[in-house]
């Protein structure tokens, strides 16, 4: 059964129809590439799944159960985590502090609780090891490479054992070597049964890690195919409109 199901999701901002009856289903451990030109509606779709926006129409089901999110926290409580386009990290804090931001581990008794630095360093180190990243828990994010920052943002999603991870252009502004690192991180997530929605403009990324590709054009889904059954040329044509639908 599908872990995440979108049925006829629509969204308009005033007169702008950003999304038009989008239906997608995600299986456990499946990586789906979401592609489309600027303004096609990719970020809007992710924000609806993450609880940032209300859909104007349609329904979301998680594990077959219909859900409605009023706030991002509610989506998180339902096992959905997001790696935002700008990563949403605090440069002045350590890797571990960022992983646990808003979910700090504390110790002590009664009302007087103090931060449990050791527990957080330890757990963060485990998560980085699990992701095969060389990121160190005590390092300041300010001093990190793009790939390490990605690892921090992705480790956040592992903290709650999320079932669905949404990634909005995680490879947009980093070096080639770091892209490879991020793609490996996505494979780690897949190995652990996490379903991933990957928004990317980079054809090679999508074709190397995704099982399936969904193409949006001006708010409408124009393709939803297994990677093996399509080609970069076809996807490019679908994105630009040279190919109407597939």
């Amino acid at each position: 059964m599908a872990i995440l199901e979108l049925n006829q999701i629509s969204k308009h901002f005033g007169a702008i129809q950003a999304l038009n009856g989008i239906s997608i289903a995600l299986e456990e451990g499946e990586v789906v590439g979401l592609m489309g030109d600027n303004g096609a509606g990719k970020s809007t779709l992710v924000k609806i799944i993450a609880g940032n926006f209300h859909p104007s129409g349609g329904e979301i089901r998680i594990g077959g159960r219909p859900v409605q999110f009023n706030r991002p926290v509610e989506a998180r409580e339902n096992g959905i985590e997001v790696v935002y386009q700008d990563l949403a990290l605090c440069d002045n804090l350590t890797a571990a502090a960022n992983v646990f931001l808003g979910r700090e581990v504390r110790k002590g008794f009664g009302p007087l609780k103090i931060l449990d630095y050791n527990a957080m360093y330890r757990r963060a180190a485990e998560l980085f090891k699990e992701l095969k990243s060389e990121t160190r828990p005590r390092d300041l994010v300010r001093q990190m490479s793009g790939g390490q920052r990605q690892a921090v943002a992705i480790a956040r999603t592992r903290l709650s054992d999320a079932k669905i991870v949404l990634m909005d252009e995680p490879t947009a502004a980093i070096s080639v070597r770091q892209v490879a690192e991020v793609l490996n991180l996505i494979r780690r997530l897949k190995d652990q049964g996490v379903a991933v929605v990957l928004i990317s403009h980079r054809m090679p990324d999508v074709f190397s890690v995704c099982d399936r590709v969904v193409v949006l054009r001006r708010g409408t889904k124009v393709a939803d195919k297994p990677i093996a059954a399509t080609s970069p040329e076809e996807v490019t044509g679908l994105i630009t409109g040279a190919i109407q639908e597939a």
Partner: peptide, 16 residues
């Protein structure tokens, strides 16, 4: 307070 000073948007998104 350090998180808000570092990146207020990130703090909001992570539920601070």
């Amino acid at each position: 307070i350090f998180a808000i000073g570092g990146n207020e948007n990130a703090a909001t998104l992570t539920g601070v």
